[in-house]
Write a protein that binds this DNA or RNA. Structure first.
Length: 272
DNA sequence: CAATCAACCTGGGTGC
DNA sequence: TGCACCCAGGTTGATT
């Protein structure tokens, strides 16, 4: 599910819904997804309050009143849902935080790839976050973007999705940004012309902002913190639109495999 | 260094 | 109906 816009939407929802609440207990039927261990997390988290929630890349960070930080990665099918205590379990619910005020924060995850990790302090967090490239909406400037492109001969879509190069862009928004910039996903990153790089730079920001505006893409499993779908899937440019007309009216959007991932593009708008 | 692939899991869709 | 197979928004680690 979650790329930058989806995680950002959840972060904003959760900030309104559960900041200030105290964690009363934790239960799980999938302890493998909790690091370093369920017991360690229980011991330090129960009794603490949630002071603040932030997003960096596709990671959510819960800053706790005891100075520790819970980091969550939703991977492909993770959901974070806020529900009233006593309401029926959610589909694929695996971890439940009981909160003050009669609420529950539930982690649901069909494929169980997602995880939750307790960090001791900000130094540990900094170490983890240092692995990621710049935030495309806040930190990334055109010049730095050009440097990133020049640093690799891999295909441009692979580079866009490389979290070490740029944080938060995944398969949906990479495909759509490349269409908007009229660049073939298989082009070598370091072969883009200055004008193309600039178009792509702006296209990335545009599709990510659209994703946030529409509260994420609920093509398959994504739901926001209240269990509602996002709407960006109704505005897909090329992603998951194989065989359909592109927005310029050209006959057929194609689907290929690139780096093992489904990749969509218009062969007329985006030439190799 | 780049490309490929398997692994982590479960479920939906397709084709025989 | 049943079954085999392929596909899925992410990331890591092994292999070539």
């Amino acid at each position: 599910m979650p790329e930058l816009p989806e995680v950002e939407t959840i972060k904003r929802d959760l900030s309104k819904l559960i900041v200030g609440r105290k964690i009363l207990s934790i239960s799980t039927d999938s302890p493998k997804q909790i690091k370093p261990s369920l017991e360690m997390v229980k011991k330090s988290v129960v009794g603490a309050s949630i002071n603040k929630i932030e997003r960096r890349a596709k990671l959510l960070q819960f800053f706790l009143s005891n100075g520790e930080i819970l980091v969550v990665h939703l991977k492909l099918t993770g959901r974070l849902l806020v529900r009233e205590k006593g309401t029926p379990q959610d589909n694929w619910q695996h971890i439940c935080f009981s909160l003050s005020g009669g609420k529950e924060l539930r982690f649901a995850d069909l494929r169980k790839f997602g995880w939750l990790k307790l960090l001791k302090d900000k130094a540990e967090l900094e170490k983890l976050l240092a692995e990621f490239g710049p935030e495309p909406l806040d930190e990334l400037g055109l010049k730095e973007f050009q440097t990133i492109l020049a640093s690799s001969s891999r295909s441009i879509k692979i580079v866009l999705m490389d979290q070490k190069k740029i944080a938060g862009v995944g398969n949906i928004y990479a495909s759509d940004a490349l269409f908007l910039a009229k660049i073939h996903p298989g082009r070598a990153a370091n072969q883009l012309k200055a004008k193309e790089a600039q178009r792509l730079f702006e296209a990335i920001k545009k599709v990510l902002r659209a994703g946030i505006k529409y509260r994420g893409a609920s093509d398959q499993y994504y739901l926001d913190a209240l269990g509602h779908k996002g709407l960006y899937q109704e505005h897909f440019l090329v992603y998951n639109r194989a065989g359909k007309k592109c927005l310029e009216g050209h006959e057929k959007i194609e689907k290929i495999r690139l780096g093992g991932r489904g990749t969509y593009f218009c062969p007329v708008c985006q030439r190799l």
